[in-house]
């Protein structure tokens, strides 16, 4: 990056910062009672929850998940569980 004219950052360059190291806990998507409501996607502060439209299988990006637990707390059918990260 040209540094000479003020310090300008490239679009989305933050993706190089793997914030997954913040996490003490990470979610497990149990897929037992899931209704596909997508609240886990809406409420993720990082935007790391993703899924497959057809199969309704959800997962999260462990490179960036900070383990806040909001997805599990807000899941209306208790289908997400937070588990400790082994460090």
């Amino acid at each position: 990056m040209d540094f000479k004219v003020g310090i300008i950052a490239m679009p989305g360059a933050a993706l190089s910062n793997k914030t997954g190291s913040f996490a003490n806990e990470t979610p497990v998507f149990k897929h037992k009672t899931c209704t596909g409501c997508n609240l886990c996607i809406y409420f993720c502060p990082e935007g790391v929850v993703y899924g497959d439209k057809k199969t309704k299988i959800y997962d999260y990006d462990s490179d960036y998940c900070k383990g806040c637990g909001i997805c599990a707390e807000e899941c209306p059918v208790d289908d997400i569980e937070m588990v400790l990260v082994e460090k």
């Binding site: 040209d2 004219v5 003020g6 310090i7 300008i8 950052a9 490239m10 679009p11």
Partner: peptide, 15 residues
């Protein structure tokens, strides 16, 4: 200006 606020080249300024 080489770098400017432009939706086609979305740089971040004042970082």
């Amino acid at each position: 200006m080489e770098y400017k606020l432009d939706v086609e080249n979305p740089y971040s300024f004042g970082t």
